[in-house]
């Protein structure tokens, strides 16, 4: 089993490496592009040239990628800082440290500092979203699956199917319309300013609700269909015909097996929630890294984009790995050779 885990770990590390290379290749596609993006549209040809030279932007792509990786882990100094470039960028940590993503061009600050301001907010948002999605969809999915064909099942199924047809931005607009615009119970934006007349808690309600509604509808459907599939398995028939009480059949025979598939889906859902976070943060003006990404994209802040995408990639790959791990742990057919 340890071998299976190590094997998967290696695979995912490899995927992350390739993906980060693609990310780097696409964002730094043309060398001239990078320098003029840094210097802005009014830079002189000679300025672009000298910056390109200084940063080695004319080197082959793979060399630049290795340098970028080296900078990330603190082996290679970041040449963009300091007075020499005339950009006024400086980093109190020095030019070389672990986790050095470089500078945000948009904010003129080290990216680590920019992230420090925003990261926590997004974590709060996702933790709440996942923390509510998992129990809600497990309960609803199991209820619907166990009572397949009943009125309860039909209500849950129709609701979840309808909800998955709604784009999150539509859900958000509807919620704002009802709870902020019409009823005035909750704020329509969530900038999390301390001086705001709405408490931070109330500002979190709608953003979290949008994420929970969209993702739990989907997860509920997965859980339901997994429960339905498991119920149709012959071993459940064996358990029932053994005369076991329905509750025992449900808990010991159905649920244990029915949870194997959804666990993977739930972990992948974390990945999905991160995408949803961009939308939600944009709509509610929520100061997290999702909105930061959008701002960076519109500004053309390539270093910030690189940093944020790398974070997204790591989260995606880690959850995929955890999903596989959960699978191995839950299914004795794989665990015990």
């Amino acid at each position: 089993m340890a071998r299976i885990v190590l094997n998967r770990l290696g695979q995912f590390a490899f995927i992350l490496l390739i993906a980060s290379f693609l990310l780097f290749a696409v964002t730094e596609f043309s060398p001239g592009n990078v320098a003029s993006k840094i210097l802005g549209p009014y830079a002189l040809e000679s300025q672009v040239r000298s910056l390109s030279d200084r940063l080695g932007l004319d080197d082959p792509l793979f060399t630049r990628y290795l340098r970028w990786l080296g900078m990330l882990v603190g082996l290679v100094p970041n040449e963009l800082g300091g007075p020499a470039t005339g950009l006024g960028l400086s980093d109190p940590r020095g030019a070389q440290y672990f986790g050095n993503f470089g500078f945000s061009l948009m904010q003129g600050r080290p990216i680590v500092d920019v992230l420090a301001d925003r990261f926590g907010h997004t974590v709060t948002l996702t933790v709440w979203a996942i923390g509510l999605t998992v129990p809600i969809s497990l309960v609803l999915g199991v209820l619907a699956g166990m009572t397949e064909g009943s009125a309860l099942d039909r209500i849950i199924s129709v609701t979840t199917v309808s909800l998955t047809s709604l784009p999150e931005f539509v859900v958000a607009v509807l919620l704002i319309f009802v709870f902020a615009a019409s009823l005035g119970w909750l704020p329509g934006t969530s900038p999390l300013d301390p001086g705001d007349r709405w408490s931070v808690g109330s500002q979190l309600v709608l953003p979290v609700a949008v994420l929970v509604i969209a993702s739990s509808a989907y997860v509920t459907r997965i859980v339901r269909s997994s429960v339905v599939d498991t119920l149709a398995q012959p071993f459940v028939r064996t358990a029932r015909l053994k005369g076991l009480a329905p509750m025992r059949v449900a808990m010991l025979h159905v649920l244990r097996n029915a949870m194997i598939a959804p666990v993977t889906v739930i972990l992948l859902q974390i990945n999905w929630i991160l995408t949803g976070v961009v939308v939600v943060e944009a709509i509610f003006a929520y100061p997290g890294i999702g909105r930061l990404m959008l701002e960076a994209a519109l500004f053309g802040d390539i270093y910030l984009i690189q940093a944020l995408t790398l974070i997204a990639l790591s989260v995606a790959v880690t959850t995929q790995f955890l999903g596989d791990l959960a699978y191995v742990l839950l299914d004795p057919r794989i665990r015990v050779a």
């Binding site: 398995q233 012959p234 071993f235 028939r237 064996t238 358990a239 015909l241 053994k242 005369g243 076991l244 010991l252 025979h253 244990r256 097996n257 194997i260 839950l330 299914d331 004795p332 057919r333």
Partner: peptide, 18 residues
């Protein structure tokens, strides 16, 4: 549970794999 018991056709699927 007590008065009757059944053995099915395909034993590979008749037992809980977990």
């Amino acid at each position: 549970g007590r008065r009757m018991a059944m053995v099915h056709q395909n034993p590979a699927t008749a037992l809980n794999p977990a």
